Amino acid sequence: HNLTITQGKLFFHYNPKLCLSEIHKMEEVSGTKGRQERNDIALKTNGDQASCENELLKFSYIRTSFDKILLRWEPYWPPDFRDLLGFMLFYKEAPYQNVTEFDGQDACGSNSWTVVDIDPPLRSNDPKSQNHPGWLMRGLKPWTQYAIFVKTLVTFSDERRTYGAKSDIIYVQTDATNPSVPLDPISVSNSSSQIILKWKPPSDPNGNITHYLVFWERQAEDSELFELDYCLKGLKLPSRTWSPPFESEDSQKHNQSEYEDSAGECCSCPKTDSQILKELEESSFRKTFEDYLHNVVFVPRKTSSGTGAEDPRPSRKRRSLGDVGNVTVAVPTVAAFPNTSSTSVPTSPEEHRPFEKVVNKESLVISGLRHFTGYRIELQACNQDTPEERCSVAAYVSARTMPEAKADDIVGPVTHEIFENNVVHLMWQEPKEPNGLIVLYEVSYRRYGDEELHLCVSRKHFALERGCRLRGLSPGNYSVRIRATSLAGNGSWTEPTYFYVTDYLDVPSNIA
């Protein structure tokens, strides 16, 4: 807008934040220059609390790290170098490059900038070799853009010569660093050979998330399962459950009422301010606690030095998902009996873990797994792929695949051998790939016309006998059925096997 004052003059007093240069501009645009008398524009009460600059400061050096910015700028000295009290560095987070010096300023003089007072450097006698002032900004957020400017702080001049310097606002972004852990990993099994893994992005990506790394490792069953005799009275049979499938998407929606109208769909109840505040506090606490764990609990591995020492970490090797089922080394339970199943799973520490690289999504279907087997899954978020990966501390989750139908069934015939004193040795093959492992066998036998009897055969007993022995049988026709019990439950009964026990007292003698 054009402003013209045809008559009258300007009068400025007691404006401590208004620089004289701005008042002189007002004289020019209003056409009143030359009308004012000496005392109409006070030299001592206008701009006496402001830094009124008329020179431009330029930054000469900028260096960044993930949490620091090192700045240096060209030296500046007023005509009387004693008038320079120091520099004021202003900075704040700036997602967009549209910041002005006066953003967030209120009537009390406060604003949204963080201000650092910096002492002037030592003055050199040689004007050509003056030290460049600077400042190291610490405690910054990774991968965050900051708006920065600097200006001088000078003393009051009796001659009211307006001098000083100020830089333009520059924008500097800190470097990326390792992201925080992925949030809320959930693993479920939808079949006997697959596990579905879902997660949420890290709360602090500290860069642009480029991919996720998912490692999985087959877990050995508890050692007590191999040692305890679950045929003993009072000892509860062990059981394991597989990871249940995901709930429906509708039930997972946030901010939804727990109660549904019987007449149909209901609208979600909005969260109160107290609920939102509580969630923010919980989120802040979780982030602080995660940072504490990362800094205190997890110790970084030592990389190899120039002395030739090897990095103890196993090298990563990509495998196809079809090879995942046989990740671990199978060892027989008892070496003397080769027909026992290889369900003991000690994992070799030198073995390469299978892994998958996930790009542009937060889910993965891990296939080719062994049925009813526990897996430990390790999830890392990465925001750099080359020249070397920059990934987060791992988040861990466990899951067990679903049982395989008929995996616990005894394959092959049940054979028998009759000894003296009416002892019958029953023999059968253990299931080759049971659900988890076989903890015991149930032997059901009966003599024709009598009630059915049951015998429990422990895992250890089966390994020693290759089956079991029935003792003290009365003469007669017998039928026997056997079924295995694994961590997933009972298998199917075998087809009945028949044998006849004679009275050993009636056996004919070869003595003449």
Results as ranks from 00 to 15, higher is better:
P354S: 06
R447V: 10
E281N: 15
E404P: 03
C468T: 02
L235F: 09
H352T: 04
V345M: 09
K406P: 06
N421E: 15
E495L: 06
H416F: 09
I482T: 02
E227V: 08
F289P: 04
H371I: 13
K236F: 04
T401A: 06
G467T: 05
A335F: 14
V439N: 03
E290R: 12
T343G: 10
H454T: 08
K302H: 13
T347E: 13
R390E: 02
D503Y: 14
D222I: 09
H454L: 05
R240V: 07
S223I: 09
F337P: 11
G374M: 05
V443A: 07
E356G: 09
E279L: 12
E388L: 11
T340S: 14
T272R: 09
N421S: 11
A484P: 05
S284V: 12
S363M: 02
D385V: 14
K253V: 01
H454Y: 14
G489W: 13
W216R: 07
F289V: 11
A263P: 13
N326V: 05
L453T: 14
V480L: 04
V324A: 08
N490H: 09
N208P: 09
T303W: 03
L228I: 13
Y448W: 06
S203E: 09
G325K: 15
V480K: 01
V299W: 02
H211W: 12
A330S: 14
L237I: 14
K317Q: 11
S203W: 05
A220K: 08
V397H: 09
S320H: 06
G449P: 09
E442V: 15
T373Q: 15
N326T: 02
R286T: 11
S398R: 05
P332G: 07
Q380E: 05
P496C: 08
H254W: 14
N206P: 03
V324N: 08
P413G: 13
G207S: 02
S203P: 05
N206D: 03
A336P: 11
D506G: 13
L487R: 06
S305T: 15
S274R: 10
F215L: 09
D229I: 08
L487M: 11
L277V: 02
S283Q: 06
L228K: 08
L455A: 13
F246L: 11
Q384F: 09
A394D: 01
A399K: 12
T373D: 03
S262N: 02
A263R: 12
E265M: 11
K287M: 10
N255W: 14
P245A: 06
G476T: 01
K302F: 14
G368H: 04
F462Q: 11
T328F: 10
C382L: 00
S363D: 13
I366G: 00
T347C: 14
R316H: 08
N435G: 01
I438L: 12
P245M: 07
E260K: 02
N490M: 07
N360Q: 13
N490A: 08
Q380T: 14
P238Q: 09
P300Y: 06
Y441K: 00
E221F: 13
T241F: 14
Q275A: 12
I418S: 09
F499V: 13
G436D: 12
E227Q: 04
D385C: 09
S320V: 11
A394Y: 12
S274K: 08
S367D: 13
S363P: 08
S509M: 10
T307H: 05
F215K: 15
R318N: 04
V414N: 01
S305H: 02
F285R: 14
C266G: 15
K278M: 07
H461S: 10
E351I: 15
P387A: 10
E260I: 07
N435K: 00
P244N: 11
I276V: 05
I418E: 13
N383A: 10
L426F: 04
S444C: 08
E221S: 12
V457S: 03
Y292R: 06
S444V: 10
V443W: 01
E433I: 13
E310S: 10
P403T: 08
A220E: 13
K406G: 11
S342C: 03
G207H: 04
I438S: 04
Y498V: 06
A309N: 12
N477G: 14
E227M: 07
I418H: 02
M402D: 01
G489N: 13
Q252Y: 05
F289R: 07
P245D: 03
T485S: 11
N490T: 11
R370M: 10
L293C: 03
S474K: 06
N255L: 03
R318V: 14
Q275S: 10
V329H: 14
E221W: 06
V439M: 05
W216Y: 08
L237M: 09
I418A: 12
V397R: 14
R481C: 02
Y445G: 15
E430L: 03
H352R: 09
Q252A: 10
K432Y: 11
E260R: 14
Y498N: 02
